[in-house]
Design a protein around this nucleic acid. Structure first.
Length: 654
DNA sequence: GCCGGTTACCTTTTT
DNA sequence: GGTAACCGGC
């Protein structure tokens, strides 16, 4: 029997004035009590506000914070919402369970470890770890020599992940998306089996495993499912249009018993199909949960009228969409501008000029953003910004965590937690002089034979290798083994060991050394190695390597450079979208595929709807694309041939 | 047999 | 700037 929730009978006693802060649709969603609810929230329609107020209201009316689960796309998003809810009400709101599907799955899998077969804990592999393992196995299996055109490890990782996230067999993925590898199918399947086997043997999970093992845990263990389900009496899922089949299934398994489930999303902003997201999940939600109430949020509070008029035209070109009628009461604002520039560098200079101009008008740098389709599109601009001393933070693209020196240091910590982590051992050992794959393998096997965790390395005899560095490595682990240390102290010890290697390997070691110092300060926040390692894989700092990694960069006045994907959910006074050139945005890879093109269009829509007051598009007019041999010279088809009263055009001829 | 340096080629988006 | 194949030296 479930305890009835004490919803307030007399709403006058509530602390927060909901009706004054919300419009009627928002209020209806916020006041929704039990059952299933679908909120279709157009861009800028106050989606976050609605979720935040609903959280606060549930808590205010007596729902236990611990029984609310808020699943979001990034952990930052959920923290932000819970912080705002706490400001509205009180700090009870901070005790709400929140995070991404992956982090929630991670927490549950560790809590119920004995049922998962990963009794002694597991290490989470990020994408490049997964690729490293695949590459290792491919070499071991001797597949390389058979066929010259065998897919590279990156491609293999893509094929495997696609198969999991789209619930297709490897053969199906190959025939749909990689037909040119059909002749290698058998080897690829063999490799995939081996990959799965090795992950289990070495206590490793990739991102997809977190979801699939969690799904299996819920399916195969009804008691655990009931337990988890009853502790999440109120489930809210944000960005539901970007969930894939497994995630939708997890939601179903969690909510099926009580059906208190609210999902929020916008089919027009679905931009993760490449990793299996299916915006049909959101449309089919009312069929999965009958009696679902549907609420549409259609008033846009973000953009001025001319911007909204243009973005409505952009999304109107989508073939498959569900009608929404976005309107705004924000008047004024100027018509968005499309600028053709001659070269990439003149585009960069146009952006720099405009930014300086706006800055002089008093718009702070962090109210402006430059958005692009792919991480490398901003390289030239970054140089130009540096030249004019404009400070910026880049989000998306290459990550801090993916840089070699960071991964090197983490590998040393990972084997302490999980001595079966073969990828990390190899990484550590290959850093030593005179150690290659073969020697690394021998040493790794000897360590495991000892059955004594990472201290197995003490048993390595000198004759096993000509490497002198092995003694220093033993010494490092001896230090860690003999002294109880905090996470940060361990990090500092590893760093001390690693420094000579760093200096020897990289000519830009001073910069990398600063990154590592920053890593230590991050470690100071953790009491357990396990949670530090899990967070580094699940929620790595999202800024790129080159940036100043000061923790509070969001408080400082920096221009934001971001991929469109990483800009989701955010907004700025002034937005520049660069490289709106057909072949760049939409990407040249999408031009031959109807569905891919649709996603690119939605991506352009997401980018343009980030702007509050000013919106600019720009592209260089003549670019030779080496990979295709094509000359790109047309503006993006998504913003071409739009009447001048909606989109002005200008040419800059420098 | 194994390691490490050299060269040609590609490079979307992310948990 | 990263990957994979190739080659020379120990």
């Amino acid at each position: 029997m479930q305890t009835p929730v004490p919803f307030a009978e007399d709403r006058k006693n509530l602390q927060i004035q909901y009706a004054e802060a919300l419009n009627p649709s928002q209020l209806e969603a916020v006041n929704f009590n039990e059952g299933s609810l679908l909120v279709i929230a157009g861009a800028g329609s106050g989606k976050t506000r609605t979720l935040t107020y609903r959280v606060a209201r549930l808590v205010e009316e007596g729902v236990l914070p611990g029984s609310i689960l808020l699943l979001t796309f990034t952990r930052k998003a959920s923290q932000e919402m819970l912080k705002r809810a706490a400001t509205l009400l009180d700090n009870r709101c901070e005790r709400i369970a929140g995070g991404t599907f992956h982090s929630f799955a991670n927490a549950m899998l560790r809590r119920h470890a004995s049922q998962t077969g990963f009794t002694s804990g597991f290490t989470i592999m990020d994408r490049s770890d997964a690729e490293a393992l695949i590459g290792m196995l491919r070499k071991e299996m001797g597949i390389v020599s058979k066929s010259r055109a065998f897919p590279r490890k990156q491609t293999l990782a893509n094929i495997f992940s696609r198969s999991v996230n789209k619930a297709l067999s490897i053969e199906e993925v190959i025939s749909y998306d990689y037909p040119h590898f059909t002749s290698d199918s058998d080897d690829i399947i063999l490799l995939y089996r081996e990959y799965k086997k090795r992950k289990a043997e070495h206590y490793l999970m990739d991102y997809d495993d977190l979801l699939t093992y969690f799904q299996r845990l819920l399916k195969d263990h009804p008691q655990i499912r009931a337990k988890i389900s009853s502790s999440c009496r109120y489930i809210m899922v944000d960005e539901y249009q970007d969930t894939n089949q497994i995630q939708a299934d997890i939601v179903y398994l969690l909510a099926e018993s009580h059906k208190n489930i609210m999902v929020v999303g916008d089919d027009s902003q679905s931009i993760y199909a490449f990793r299996g997201a299916n915006f049909r999940n959101i449309m089919e939600f009312p069929e999965i949960f009958p009696d679902t109430k549907v609420i549409k949020l259609e008033e846009n509070y973000r953009s001025v009228q001319p911007i909204l008029a243009l973005t409505n035209v952009i999304i109107d070109r989508a073939v498959e969409k569900y009608s929404k009628n976005l309107f705004t009461q924000k008047s004024g604002g100027s018509i968005p501008l499309l600028v053709d520039t001659l070269t990439e560098n003149s585009q960069s200079r146009f952006i720099v000029d405009k930014i300086m101009e706006f800055k002089q008008q008093g718009i702070p740098l962090n109210e402006m953003a430059v958005l692009f389709r792919a991480g490398f599109h901003s390289f030239d601009l970054e140089i130009e910004l540096g030249r004019y001393g404009i400070s910026f933070v880049k989000v998306g693209g290459f990550k801090f965590m993916e840089s070699a020196h960071i991964k090197d240091v983490l590998a040393h910590l990972r084997v302490i937690f999980n001595p079966y982590d073969r990828i990390s051992w190899y990484r550590i050992l290959l850093l030593l002089d005179k150690v290659g794959p073969k020697t690394a393998q021998n040493i790794y096997e000897e360590i495991l034979r000892e059955q004594s965790g990472y201290t197995g390395i003490f048993a390595i005899k000198d004759k096993a290798t000509r490497a002198k560095g092995i003694d220093r490595l033993k010494d490092l682990f001896a230090q860690i083994d003999s002294n109880p240390m905090s996470v940060a102290e361990m990090g500092a010890t590893v760093l001390n060991y690693y420094e000579p290697i760093l200096v020897d390997t990289y000519d830009d070691h001073p910069k990398r050394a600063r990154d590592l110092e920053h890593l230590i300060t991050i470690m100071e926040r953790y009491h357990q190695l396990e949670s530090f390692l899990a967070d580094m894989a699940l929620e790595p700092p999202n800024t790129s390597i080159d940036d100043n990694l000061s923790l509070d960069y969001s408080n400082k006045d920096h221009l934001i450079l971001s991929t469109v994907h990483s800009a989701k959910g955010l907004e700025w006074h002034t937005v520049f979208i660069i490289w709106t050139l057909d072949g760049r945005f939409p990407s040249i890879h999408a031009l031959n595929n109807e569905e891919d093109l649709e996603e690119e269009l939605r991506l352009m829509y997401v980018a343009a709807t980030r702007a509050k007051e000013n919106l600019f598009f720009s592209y260089p007019m003549q670019i030779y694309d080496r990979s295709s041999g094509l000359m790109l010279s047309r503006p993006s088809r998504f913003i071409d041939r739009i009447p001048h009263d909606l989109l002005e055009r200008r040419t800059i001829g420098i």
